[in-house]
């Protein structure tokens, strides 16, 4: 029995909490949840695919890989501009901030445009969510990713407006940093989806 287990701290009060600011912690925590969401979808995809491997279409048999490859590149570019937007506002470069937030929003929107085109093409060829397991999983996974991009674009548009109003000037870059975390995450998810749904 160890009695008197340090009831006092000699008046000293050790520091608590992380050095990171709260919004950033919050976004990291939220992204953990997002990871689990996509893990659920991707896990289901893998299980279903192994369950029906013989009937599974070959890569490129149904989907148009080149178009999506270009689209993937587009999305990656948006991540680059996102980084630059954050860097600019961190360095207090007003023009850069505005330019790159705008660019990110626009490029993100472009990605969505291409995805809508892809969907309409597939649907016109009669390939829909009802077209077997492949259709089910394809539309659900890319659809949810698309929804995430859409939410991102909405936020970026709002951020762009804020940037032009000078909202991120004089070192007030935290908003962009947090938004950036989300943006890069969505980007990363796409690279995984593109690999397993289109290429493999």
């Amino acid at each position: 029995m160890e009695a008197h287990a340090m009831p006092y701290y000699g008046g000293r009060t050790p520091e608590t909490g992380l050095a990171v600011y709260t919004q950033k912690v919050g976004m990291w925590v939220f992204l953990c949840s997002e990871v689990m969401f996509f893990t659920g979808l991707i896990g289901s995809y893998i299980i279903l695919r192994f369950g029906a491997s013989e009937t599974w279409p070959q890569p490129g048999e149904i989907l148009n890989i080149p178009v999506t490859a270009i689209n993937t590149f587009i999305l990656i570019c948006s991540s680059v501009t996102m980084v630059k937007a954050f860097a600019a506002s961190e360095m207090g470069d007003k023009r850069g901030t505005r330019l790159f937030t705008l660019a990110t929003a626009v490029i993100g929107a472009t990605f969505l445009g291409v995805q809508i085109y892809e969907y309409s093409e597939l649907l016109s060829h009669g390939f829909g969510p009802w077209s077997g397991l492949y259709g089910s999983t394809f539309y659900t996974m890319t659809g949810f990713h698309g929804f995430h991009v859409f939410s991102g674009v909405v936020c970026m548009t709002w951020a762009t407006v804020k940037a032009f109003r000078g909202g991120y000037d004089n070192g007030n870059y935290q908003g962009l940093e947090v938004l950036g975390l989300y943006w890069h995450f969505v980007d990363l998810v796409w690279i995984i989806l593109f690999t397993i749904v289109y290429l493999i």
Binding site: V29, S33, F37, G40, F144
Partner: peptide, 25 residues
Amino acid sequence: ALLAMPVLSGALIMLLFDQTIGTHF
């Protein structure tokens, strides 16, 4: 809750799609 709930949400939506838009999960 943070790690378990999203998995349920995903599953629920698949179930909803099975009923409404004809998927086959």
